[in-house]
Design a binder for these strands. Structure first.
Length: 866
RNA sequence: GCGGGCGUGGUGAAACUGGUAGACACAAGGGACUUAAAAUCCCUCGGCUAACGCUGUACGGGUUCGAUUCCCGUCGCCCGCACCA
């Protein structure tokens, strides 16, 4: 038996079928045991899984299988983020329906995931493009609309004039549509919004409670929400056009309120638009501002431009103080009120602007050691640095920090009714309207008499029509001949369906809740959802740090407000795993070459590569994230076919810490595959040994005890490492245990050691099972154990095996290790000191000198200072 | 510019709350077995040195009996955000 190699190609499908037939991973909601919910971010059904998925799902599966072995009722579901643009693009290219393309992809990817041997409850599978799913989303949309959490308003969007659709910010590259390449226009469109900004403060504050989230993600969300505190006041506009007598402004720099020399408004400010109506020069200027676009580089290098409106505004604290009012290209309508007060001395943008238009620059404060006025560089110190105030609403020459001065000025303004303290957030409402077919229809109708009203719940779902064509650019839903024409359910008159669909981020904002009762005829079964949620461990890529995770946090709050769940935070633990990278290769002609087309040769420290077919030399390039364009991708199917799923999983978990990028190497996979065979051999040798008569009857209690100590330390350590998601360390400890067992097998073996080896082989099998589940089942079977290792309990740790009665302490002389001493555990410091000073080595090193001091940390270390 | 993180052998990395730096793995080199290859097993493997030793965790300081770990400064890399008033 031991002569046979382990064959994953035979073994893996066999166990997958056995797990399926035994319903090993089907989770019952009424199971009374402690619940544990582990979830990996569900994939977009692009058609094929990639190594990033393999890594992500391997990690989640280890967590799921571990907690199952720990006796918990584990929920580990999988589904498909199935709406979205690529399906429509595929439909255009292949003349198919987005739905059939999507469902085919789902089937293909599901088969791939199944070949990985994941412990997933497939009875809970959901696809967001199915009416079974999105009807509930529509129903919740209506609840939220009625609860005042949804609003419809006009807003500026990125409009692609060729594809005739709104683009998300991340789909605009260098000011051009990512697909059409056409320059993106800013358009004003009426859109549906979730009022996420109503929750800004709560979303910000609650971040402090998410202790099991990476600090990095919490910081990113904090920045995104962008809370700032400052002063809100009104300018009085002199000789103002009707309706524009006051101009609201927000500033975070109340302390500079005696240093402004101009005021400015955004090009899109209502006042700018009003003025443009009677002034063609302003129209031209506003258009010029729009042309700069949204591209980062353009913004960085754009010159500060302004247009003097000729209007004057009056300083709130001193009506006799007039400031010129400009329209300026660097003022954003989206932030604050779209109007600013310009204090050039202490803001670089304001200074650039002032220098260009020859506006005065008034220093408000100066460094403590200088009286030089501001030149071309604004003086912007840390807000906690002390500076000398020379021009402000306080004592002249006062030395204080910006923070202190701001607080004082704010108080003064409030006292005199010149303005009020205000908190501002950068977070804007979440616009969810998309002019797209392949998304969840927004369940409202527009009636000329009754207005914009929700579809009655009894008429849900508002289904997407099947008979659509994509021969025209734009929204196929809108082009459909009949779909949008309806009768108003209230007045019976003619009405029009909303043809916009929802942003796909809505779909992924609650799927984790749907998994808890995926077949219910309500969006959730609150009692069930409340029992499972929050997700104990959520695992996915850091690229979702803001959008998906922030939207989900909001949506959970909105679901709470509408009675669908009774909690605010959806994910208790979050883990963001690193990317999978690979070396890149380039041919002599500069083309990227796939790793499967080359041969690597290594001698000493130098590695060279050549083309497998032609033998031509190939340049080894940098290590990059796997991407099709650089051809440095490895196909999971090929890996599973060649080495088996267990090898792929094992390699993905070993070596690199999970939050860091991991480099896929052929040598590494070979190593993982060798280890698989080693374990199989080891287990078989242990079985053979067990069946033979003992070679020696001599007592071997000491060896057996040493091995059992290693076994139990491994059980303890590996469990802790898995709980802490330190998979690379868990893997290292499994190697250590394997090495210890191999070593013991090679020595003289008496009856007690033989028993210890059998104990080790069995425990190793269980410890290995979350990571290499198929191999573990095969070993379990060979060991003659009852049932499936998937149902086996995690081994108990014998605490007595963790403590050793002796301890080896290093002995340092002046901080350098010179010797070591083995003493009984808990030997008092004085006793250790006596023993150390009598040691020959120490006496020799001391050369008769008397030690100045001896530090003894019991059971740890000795340091002799001379 | 603002915020966050990181820097340890040829490589990926370990090192618990300040206590033997380099666990574990990969690569490499040497050897055993073999007609040969594969597979497997054994040995070496931070640098310098013939050796005793010395030195070494980006660099320079500091605190400490003792620093990869704590503090200050410098350099380098990565990530996120950004005309946010």
């Amino acid at each position: 038996m031991s002569g046979e190699r382990y064959n994953p190609r035979e073994s893996e499908p066999k166990w997958q079928k056995i797990w399926d037939d035994a319903k090993s991973f089907v989770t019952a909601n009424d199971d009374p045991r402690e619940c544990y919910y582990v979830l990996e971010m569900f994939p977009y059904p692009s058609g094929r899984i990639h190594m990033g998925h393999v890594r992500n799902y391997s990690m989640g599966d280890v967590v799921a299988r571990y907690h199952r072995a720990r006796g918990k009722n584990v929920l580990h579901p999988m589904g498909w983020d199935a709406f979205g643009l690529p399906a429509e693009n595929a439909a255009i290219e292949r003349k198919t329906h987005p739905g059939s393309w999507t469902y085919q992809n789902i089937e293909a990817m599901k088969a791939q995931l199944k070949s990985m041997g994941l412990s997933i409850d497939w009875t809970r599978e959901i696809a967001t493009c199915s009416p079974d799913y999105y009807q509930h989303q529509q129903s919740m949309f209506i609840d939220m609309l009625e609860a005042g959490l949804v609003t419809r308003k006009s807003s500026k969007v990125n409009w692609d004039p060729v594809d005739m659709t709104v683009l998300a910010n991340e789909q605009v590259i260098d000011g051009k549509g990512w697909r059409s390449g056409a320059p993106v226009e800013q358009r004003e469109l009426t859109q549906w919004f979730f009022k996420i900004s109503d929750f800004a403060e709560d979303l910000l504050e609650a971040l402090d409670t998410l202790n099991d989230w990476p600090e990095k993600v919490r910081t990113m969300q904090r920045n995104w929400i962008g809370k700032s505190q400052g002063l809100s006041f009104n300018f009085t506009v002199k000789d103002a056009p009707q309706g524009f007598e006051t101009l609201p402004v927000f500033t975070t720099r109340a302390d500079t309120m005696r240093g402004p020399t101009f005021a400015a408004i955004a090009a899109d400010h209502p006042l700018s638009k009003h003025l443009a109506e009677s002034n063609p020069a302003i129209v031209d200027f506003i258009e010029a501002c729009h042309r700069i676009g949204t591209a980062q580089e353009a913004i960085d290098t754009a010159e500060k431009l302004g247009f003097d409106t000729g209007l004057k505004v009056l300083h709130p604290a001193d009506p006799s103080w007039e400031l010129p009012l400009y329209i300026a290209n660097f003022v954003l309508m989206d932030y604050g009120t779209g109007a600013i007060i310009g204090c050039p001395a202490h803001d670089q943008r304001d200074l650039d602007f002032a220098r260009k238009y020859d506006l005065p620059v008034l220093d408000v404060f100066m460094p403590l050691d200088s009286d030089t006025p501001v030149g071309t560089e604004a003086f912007v110190p840390q807000k906690t640095d002390k500076v000398k105030y020379v021009r402000w609403f306080g004592e002249d020459g006062a030395v204080l920090t910006n923070e202190e001065a701001m607080a004082k000025t704010l108080a003064l303004f409030e006292e005199n009714g010149w303005g009020t303290a205000q908190t501002q957030y950068r977070l804007r409402d979440w616009g969810i309207s998309r002019q797209r077919y392949w998304g969840c229809p927004i369940p409202v109708i527009h009636c000329g008499v009754c207005g914009t009203i929700p579809v009655p719940k009894k008429d849900l779902p508002v289904k997407l029509p099947e008979d659509v064509t994509f021969d025209k650019p734009g929204n196929a839903l809108d082009h459909h001949p009949t779909w949008k024409h309806v009768h108003c359910h209230q007045c019976g008159g003619t009405a029009r369906r909303e043809t916009d669909t929802m942003d796909t981020f809505v779909d992924s904002s609650w799927y984790f809740a749907r998994f808890t009762a995926p077949h219910a005829d309500t969006p959730t079964v609150p009692a069930v959802a409340n029992r499972w949620l929050p997700v104990d461990q959520y695992i996915g890529g850091v690229e979702h740090a803001i959008l998906h995770l922030l939207y989900s946090r909001f949506f959970t709050r909105a679901m709470k407000a509408t009675g669908h769940v009774d909690l605010s935070e959806p994910f208790k633990g979050l883990f963001t795993q690193g990317m999978v990278t690979h070396e890149t290769y380039k041919s002599q002609t500069g083309e990227w070459v796939n790793p499967t087309e080359i041969l690597i040769e290594a001698t000493g420290d130098t590695r060279t590569a050549k083309d497998l077919k032609t033998g031509a030399p190939v340049t080894i390039g940098s290590v990059e994230k796997m991407s099709k364009s650089k051809k440095n991708v490895v196909d999971p199917d090929e890996i599973v076919a060649t080495y088996g799923a267990d090898t792929a999983r094992w390699f993905m978990l070993s070596d690199s810490p999970p939050e860091r990028d991991v480099q896929w190497t052929e040598a590494g996979v070979e190593g993982a595959s060798r280890f698989q065979q080693r374990v199989w051999r080891l287990v078989n040798e242990a079985i053979e040994l067990d069946q033979r008569a003992a070679e020696s009857t001599a007592t071997d209690a000491k060896d057996a005890l040493a091995l059992r100590r290693v076994i139990h330390r491994s059980v303890d350590g590996i469990g802790k490492d898995i709980e802490g998601l330190r998979f690379n360390r868990a893997v290292a400890q499994i190697y250590e245990l394997t090495n210890a067992l191999t070593k013991t097998l090679q020595g003289q073996i008496g009856p007690e050691t033989r028993a210890a080896i059998m104990e080790g082989a069995e425990k190793l099998t269980v410890l290995l099972s979350p990571m290499m589940p198929h191999l573990a089942e095969t070993c379990w079977e060979a060991l003659g154990k009852y049932g499936l290792v998937a149902d086996a309990n995690w081994p108990e740790v014998d605490e007595a095996m963790l403590v050793d009665d002796t301890v080896t302490m290093p002995i340092q002389v002046n901080g350098k290790r010179r010797a070591e001493i083995t003493v009984a555990k808990g030997t008092p410091a004085a006793e250790v000191e006596r023993l150390v000073l009598s040691m020959d080595e120490i006496v020799r090193i001391l050369e008769g000198k008397a030690p100045k001091k001896i530090v003894v940390v019991p059971d740890r270390i000795v340091n002799v200072v001379v």
